[in-house]
Amino acid sequence: MTAADAHPGAAAPADLGALALAEVVACHAFFVDWYAGRLGEAALTDRLTAFSPDFLRIAPDGREVRFADLDGFLSARRAAKPDNFAIRIEDGHTVWQDDRAALVSYVEYQQTGALETRRRSTALFLACPTAPHGVLWRHLQETTIQPNGSAGKTPSAE
């Protein structure tokens, strides 16, 4: 039974997983333009409205970046990448969701010229109708995928 079934005429709750994955793509498109120096300072202020004040990012190396650090963290990286820098998001899917939050997973590919890196990320989003895509980033865990694809795999006994 859906919310619309329980309350005839009521709108079904938003698919928070789909909203979260749309936000992931939009955020990384911002990073490409921001890191290449193609956006003005106001773009960062707008982008930060998609993050919860309680946001925590755990980088692949284990370092933590909190919401209070985001402005400085992203400002320091502005214009740090060449024009051929690109990010693509693949394998995005919803791990879990309810009407207040969604947990999604995706693989982020970063490419600068011939160099490509990959990371598998899991992100928790909170519903927020006033956020740009209807959700706020709350928690992000990133893990580097080694060039041989071994991230998260147990070595074989061979």
Rank of each mutant, 00 (worst) to 15 (best):
V25W: 04
A29M: 08
Q111W: 05
H93K: 14
D46M: 11
A29W: 02
P132G: 02
C128D: 15
L39M: 14
P155Q: 11
F67H: 15
W137R: 03
V24D: 01
E108M: 11
E41I: 11
H93P: 03
H7G: 10
P155N: 10
A102P: 03
A101L: 15
W137K: 02
E41Y: 08
A86G: 06
I58C: 08
A151E: 06
G113W: 03
F125Y: 09
V25L: 07
P60A: 12
G17Q: 00
A18S: 13
F51A: 04
G72H: 08
E108I: 01
F125E: 00
A59P: 00
A12D: 14
L74F: 14
V24R: 00
R100Q: 13
A14R: 10
V95N: 04
A101Y: 08
Y109D: 09
R100S: 13
G152S: 03
Q146K: 10
E23V: 07
A3T: 11
E108D: 02
P13S: 10
G17S: 01
D5W: 07
A18W: 05
P82H: 00
T143E: 13
F73E: 09
N148P: 02
A29N: 12
R57G: 11
A102N: 02
F30A: 00
G37H: 08
L16R: 00
Q97C: 08
F73T: 02
A36M: 07
E158F: 12
P155D: 11
R47N: 13
I87H: 03
A36P: 04
W137M: 00
H28F: 12
P155T: 12
A76S: 10
T45M: 03
A151T: 04
A26M: 05
L124I: 12
Q111C: 09
F55L: 14
V25D: 14
A36E: 11
G9Y: 05
L16D: 00
L44V: 07
A86E: 15
A43I: 03
V32K: 07
A42Y: 03
R78W: 02
E64H: 13
V65T: 15
F125W: 02
V107G: 01
A59K: 15
H7K: 11
R57D: 09
C128F: 08
E23K: 09
A43V: 04
A22V: 04
R88T: 15
D54N: 14
Y106R: 02
A50V: 05
P53A: 12
D33N: 13
E116A: 12
P8N: 07
Y109E: 15
R66F: 05
P132A: 08
R38C: 05
H93Q: 13
A127Q: 10
R88Q: 13
A101I: 10
T112N: 09
V104E: 01
A14Y: 01
V107P: 00
C128L: 06
A14S: 10
D33P: 01
Y109I: 14
A18H: 04
A59S: 15
L103N: 07
H7E: 12
T130H: 12
F30I: 07
L16F: 01
P13E: 03
D46Q: 13
M1F: 10
E158C: 06
T94N: 01
Q97V: 04
G62C: 06
E116S: 12
F73S: 08
S52F: 00
A123H: 02
Q146A: 14
D54H: 13
A114F: 08
A123C: 11
G92E: 03
D91Q: 15
A80Y: 09
G9D: 05
L74P: 00
K81Q: 13
R77W: 06
A18K: 13
D69N: 04
